[in-house]
Design a binder for these strands. Structure first.
Lengths: 252, 252
DNA sequence: CGTTAACTTGAATTTTGTCAATGCCTGTGG
DNA sequence: CCACAGGCATTGACAAAATTCAAGTTAACG
């Protein structure tokens, strides 16, 4: 599993001492002595069902991980950026496909050796654990998106996600580079390319975003995007919430 | 995060020695000296945004974890069964709500102490790690369901999931007890109660399942359910799969 | 045994998907 | 460096699936 990613991506520390060093050991440094491998855009790193022999660290570019239903429908479950790990799990086989979206550079590490390195380092362990938890958190957000948001809300949420990844620190970038195609976006957002296209056109028409080339979008009305993304509530709902049951009783 | 669950649920070992014991130490045994607490159906264990002070182990009953959008829409991201853990994460606050679906018995453990216990035990660590990975795997399956399956496929997949949980070992039970309401199912499957109801009615009408009370369903045509659940492909697709691009080139 | 929440069913509406045609980038090769 | 082809994206008209709104019906619980 693991294809951890998301918010707090630590900067890749350049390899100082050998693996034994215990000081500023970061997850990325486990890979630092491995050679860089390149994958062309569109090429697979591995397929679902392959023996899970390796863990990869993304150094440059973007990956997609996805599953295919028996009739060919594809669901992309995540996009991976530099600093993310691919293929971490305790299973014998990979549970999903991994492909390069753009030209990609990765480092490769044998799964068993990786497990050992993690297990032996009381410094690395919590880092990996935290990554897993972050990944789980964003998987849940994605489930919320897929189960309850409409097309426009999905697109806005997606743009915000990309905007977050664009900039270091925590403030969003207003200029978004979209490395993937409309088909990738559709298969990630549970829509069709046509709906993705129409929705983006509509956002442009209302002056909420502008476009300069298919893969470059600028946010013009951030507040509107934020609202349309339908962020999960902090405290009190705007409209009266649905009622769920009145049986709620305190624990004994 | 963590609300690990799913397939390989280990049997709860009765507490033998104190926490230091290194023999058949299972994750559950960490909690075994804590008192049992009860929650009535519908009552909350905690809310999103609460200080994440505790980790819970489900001993009996079923929980739902969910998020609420600002306008009141609810998305249930998981149901938790005995043996599952709730509230494991590295965050300061809970990221979701947890409520009892049925009357529930749990044990409670302070988050910090739990982290320590895990960190100190080279036996527990991989167990927790494996749970997290399993949870991630089923989160991905749920994303596939929500992004690409139609109502009927979602219901059949859901029934199969329940059937798996019903029986020990790995063979499905043909008699399914559905502890949650149609509304819970709808909010978990990204549908409305009406669609859930109609779909179940349709399955009954075709003799694929039968019903004896709203919360008890029997599978009559397992093969049909399996097919309708649209299980992810093993090898070759039935119909010609969509083409994705022809650029695919092997890595350098 | 009655009340009321939970569920089912039907009809109308909305959203998104499908099919089809056209337009526009982008990257390749001249 | 430019032209051109093919892939990718947009747009439109129509269809299908699911949602919404509105009654009814059933069954769970006190």
């Amino acid at each position: 599993m693991l294809s951890a990613s998301n918010l707090p991506r630590q900067t890749m520390s350049t390899s100082h001492a050998a693996a034994a060093a215990e000081s500023t050991l970061s997850l990325g440094s486990v890979f630092s002595d491995k050679p860089i491998e390149q994958f062309a855009a569109g090429s697979p790193l591995f397929w679902e069902g392959d023996k899970a022999k390796h863990v990869f660290e993304v150094v440059e570019g973007v990956l997609r991980i996805f599953k295919i239903l028996s009739d060919g429908r594809r669901a992309i479950t995540g996009f991976l950026y530099p600093g993310d790990l691919v293929g971490v799990s305790m299973r014998d086989l990979y549970l999903y496909n991994a492909e390069a979206v753009t030209p990609v550079k990765v480092r490769r590490f044998a799964s068993v050796a990786f497990q050992e390195a993690i297990n032996l380092s009381p410094e690395l362990r919590p880092q990996l654990f935290a990554k897993l938890c972050d990944e789980m958190a964003s998987a849940q957000d994605q489930m919320v998106l897929l189960s309850r948001k409409n097309a426009e809300e999905r697109i806005c949420s997606f743009l915000l996600m990309l905007a977050k990844r664009m900039s270091r620190d925590n403030n969003l970038s207003m200029n978004i580079e979209i490395p993937m195609t409309r088909l990738d976006m559709a298969d990630y957002l549970g829509l069709t390319i046509e709906t993705v296209s129409r929705t983006i056109t509509s956002l442009i028409g209302r002056g909420i975003i502008t476009q300069s080339g298919r893969h470059d979008i600028s946010i013009k009305k951030l507040d509107t995007i934020l609202r349309l993304a339908g962020h999960v509530e902090a405290d009190e709902p705007k409209s009266a919430p649905r009622e769920y049951s009145r049986q709620a009783v305190w624990p004994t």
